[in-house]
Design a protein around this nucleic acid. Structure first.
Lengths: 133, 133
DNA sequence: CAGCTTTGATTGACATACTTAACGCTGCTG
DNA sequence: CAGCAGCGTTAAGTATGTCAATCAAAGCTG
C-alpha cells in the first residue's frame, strides 16, 4: 500500500478549485447543478479526499471557465505541460520561527514551514492567478 | 445503463494507445512494467472497456513518450472549454514591493493591496485548510 | 512429441470514484 | 420562540477503476 503520498497533490488541486469557486461566488450546490456532479462529492474533492476523474475535472473546468492547462497542472500534470521551471534552489534551513524575514506574500508563503512544497506551489498558483485578473 | 454514447470516445483513446504501443514495439507486459499498471488493465483500456484515471493516463503518456496534449485530446479534452484563448505570454512582472511590516502569511495577504477582499478571504481559506491537516 | 516462454484476454476480489439522503449549523422572517 | 432556507459536511450505498492470478493460443528449443 503505497497510498497516502499523493494527498498533498490532491489537496493542492482541491484548494485551487475551492478558491476559484469562491471567487466566482458559487455555492457547492450551484456548482453541482452546473457540473452535474453531486455537491457532496465536490466538497470531498475540494478537501482532498478524492481525486476526480477526467470527466469530473472537465466539468469543473467548464463550469468555472478555468484555463484547462492551469487546472490540469494543479491536478498533477506538472511534469510535462507547462514547465514553469520552478527553480527550487537548495533546502532551506527550516527556520523555526518566521519572526524575522521579508514580508511579501510570496516570501511569506515560502517561509511558512508548516506547508509542504506542493502546498506552497498551489497557494502561490492561486495567488498569481488572482493577480492576473 | 446508458449503453454506449461515450464508448466511441473511449474507444478512440484505447485505439490510439494501442497503435502507439504497437508502433513502439512494446508488449502489454513490457508497457505494464514501465507504467506500473497491470497488463490486464491496459488490455481493457486499449479495447475501450474502461476509462483510465489521470494517474494511469499520465503513466501511459510517459512510457510511450507521447505528447501530453495529444493524449489528453484523445481522452476527451477536445470538446468543451471553448475559447480560452489563453493569452499566456508569461511575462511575470514579479514586482514585489513588500511594504515593510508584518511577516506571517496571514498578515502578508491582508497587506496585499492588489487583492480584493474576496480574493484575500479565498486565499486565506485555502491557507487555513492546508494547516488543518 | 513434450516442455518452456511470451503473447493478449478473462475472472474474481478489492480500492476508489461517485450518488442520494440525511445531518448540524448559520441567518433570516414572522 | 418556531420555522424555513441556505450553506458545507457526513453516512451509506452503487458504479467503476485496478490488480493478482489465471487462461488458451502461438512461437521456440530440444
Amino acid at each position: 500500500m503505497q497510498g497516502g503520498g499523493w494527498s498533498d497533490q490532491v489537496n493542492a488541486l482541491g484548494g485551487f478549485i475551492r478558491a476559484q469557486r469562491q471567487m466566482a461566488k458559487l455555492s457547492l450546490r450551484e456548482m453541482a447543478s452546473m457540473t452535474r456532479v453531486s455537491n457532496a462529492y465536490l466538497s470531498q474533492v475540494e478537501r482532498g479526499l478524492h481525486q476526480p476523474s477526467l470527466k469530473v475535472l472537465h466539468s469543473i473546468a467548464d463550469a468555472l471557465q478555468l484555463n484547462t492547462e492551469q487546472l490540469l497542472q494543479q491536478a498533477g500534470w506538472g511534469g510535462g505541460v507547462g514547465a514553469a521551471a520552478a527553480a527550487n534552489g537548495g533546502a532551506e534551513p527550516a527556520a523555526e520561527e518566521a519572526s524575522a524575514g521579508p514580508c511579501s506574500v510570496e516570501e511569506a508563503v515560502r517561509a511558512e514551514t508548516r506547508l509542504t512544497e506542493e502546498q506552497k506551489a498551489a497557494l502561490l498558483g492561486v495567488y498569481r492567478s488572482f493577480l492576473e485578473s
